[in-house]
Amino acid sequence: MRLVASGASVIGPAHLQDNLPNQDAFNVCGVHGGVFAAVADGLGSRALSHIGSCKAVKLARDAVKQLQTAAPEKLMTCLKAQWLVACGSDFRDFDTTCLWAHVSDSGVLRLAQVGDGLVMVKSAGIFRVLTPTRDGFANQTDTLGCAKPERWTCSQIQLSQPGDGVLLLTDGISDDLIPEQLGQFFDAIYHRTSRLSKRAMRRWLEQELAQWSTPLHGDDKSLAGIFRLD
């Protein structure tokens, strides 16, 4: 079974305008014969959230490496504890969301989400959104450091067909996508990822995200996906 993955992150116009760093982070890498992917969105109102989001995606990868077959809930518990230790007593300054996924070499997908953004999955050829409907408004989010386990979205799913996979988006992208077209968006990313090299795919994604067309958009934008090829 072959897996392909892609990811990219671009700074939003609002942060460029105010000379602020990209507060999103992403990570895509091979882990134990499978593939890991994560995105995180540091809170705009927190001074060090750009560091918090980087720590989140790296610590999520480390947790998956350490706990090879653990359930997503256990991985989240480990990730949260490690992130709180890494950020120290001022962890609120580092507040961030975190969405991660790992697909094993046998096609077992484990994933989790805390905070806003979107997780989309295709399994056995059936597309679905795993993120619960938001009960509030844009940019009001749970965070890795503060959310209780009942606010996490965790899942373990078998990827059984070519084209199955998982796509993780920060809200800079997900809030501006037409809800009825999420499935087609997923397929568009899959088809590109299956045709391009990892480096070319990242370059294409960065170009696409940099020319985002929603009027007055300002957020940083990050995306990472893993797909089954055969």
Partner: peptide, 12 residues
């Protein structure tokens, strides 16, 4: 842009 057709064309 290939992805433009999926993007909402109204500001938040």
């Amino acid at each position: 842009s290939e992805l433009k057709k999926f993007q909402v064309q109204a500001a938040r």
